[in-house]
Amino acid sequence: MNIFRFLGDMTHLISILILLLKIYATKSCSGISLKTQELYALVFLTRYLDLFTDFISVYNTVMKLVFIASSLAIVWCMRNHPLVRRSYDKQLDTFRHYFLLLASFLLALLLHEKFAFQEVLWAFSIYLEAVAILPQLVLLQRSGNVDNLTGQYVFFLGAYRALYIFNWIYRYFIDPHFTRWIACVSGLVQTALYADFFYYYFISWKNNAKLQLPA
């Protein structure tokens, strides 16, 4: 495992910890899209079916279990916790996420490494992860003001994607057998979706001002 991959995993973990901290400390999920969180839970559940079939390393297994458990806990809190659910911006979280599910599934049926149950679901999880941030970005855009922890959450999530691209570039040169086109192309699309957010994040950071997205 190279340094980019490891830092990518760590920023991914940090983003989830920031989200859990926000929900736990403020008992609020305002600014967070339940639809994006549900899509991520589905991404992890469909991709990590290999927990039952392949053992890669203790690190790999633990991280997978942490991602599954934390995403389910976040969805549960946003739906069921008496205080947290009241702060959910339901009227702003209107992105038609079923279209993302359908499109990802159809694409997975067409484009996969092998036509097998686990492989098709793996491709589905890759396509779905690439677009799962969209409801979250739309919600932020609609609310305009982004609170500090929500801004950090999306920033670290974007950093994770960017670091995975460096990881693939590194692997491409080091490991001549590394050709994972489905993951790499989807990853590029996914990272591109953050470009706009990153732009405004750095402007607010440079000016030492609150993060605001244009309407």
Partner: peptide
Amino acid sequence: SSTREVKDEL
């Protein structure tokens, strides 16, 4: 396993 390629990334 031998039937599918192991995917080592998360």
